[in-house]
Design a protein around this nucleic acid. Structure first.
Length: 152
DNA sequence: GCCAACGTTGGC
DNA sequence: GCCAACGTTGGC
């Protein structure tokens, strides 16, 4: 099993939105970066992910979710009316992919970005490296577990 | 709103 | 294939 970190702007879609979704599940749409896309491709059913809130007042690891459907074409890329429309992505050979994720839990104590920066065990995290802009990234099992521990 | 760090685009 | 210009991300 692998572990991941998924970024989402809570103003657009938050951990609460996920918990209130039908079946507490949603499709992870709109990834338009090749490296992030390749990570989506690696995800397997049962993998777990940190749900991270970014671009907001309280940047934090907000909870965890689980991969419940492996990669399939991101259909929002085919829709001219969608904000993530990409005319270069063809139905015959889709450029962009999505997975389905299911809510597992919202942290009682969200783990703030500054909190993670202060934790020596998390210093190697991709998230903390300067200039990192990936919205989907792998995270070590130990780091995942450390963040969960901090949220208790 | 600022701006550093990336990714993408397109002329050559 | 190089690289300047431009667009985007994301913390602050």
């Amino acid at each position: 099993m692998k572990y991941w970190l998924l970024k989402s702007e809570p103003g657009v879609f938050s951990i609460d939105d996920l918990s209130k979704s039908k079946n507490q599940t949603t499709y992870w749409e709109g990834v338009r970066n090749y490296q992030a896309r390749n990570y989506l491709r690696e995800m397997k059913i049962g993998d777990k992910a940190i749900f991270y809130h970014n671009n907001c007042a309280s940047i934090c690891a907000a909870g965890i979710c689980e991969i419940v459907k492996e990669n399939y074409p991101d259909f929002t890329a085919f829709d001219p009316d969608d904000i993530h429309y990409d005319p270069k992505s063809r139905k015959e050979s889709p450029t962009w992919l999505m997975v389905d994720v299911k809510y597992l839990k919202k942290f009682n104590n969200p783990v703030t970005l500054s909190g993670m920066k202060e934790n020596k065990r998390l210093q190697k995290m991709r998230l903390l490296q300067t200039g990192n802009r990936l919205s989907v990234m792998p995270i070590a099992k130990e780091e995942f577990e450390e963040i969960v521990r901090m949220s208790l």
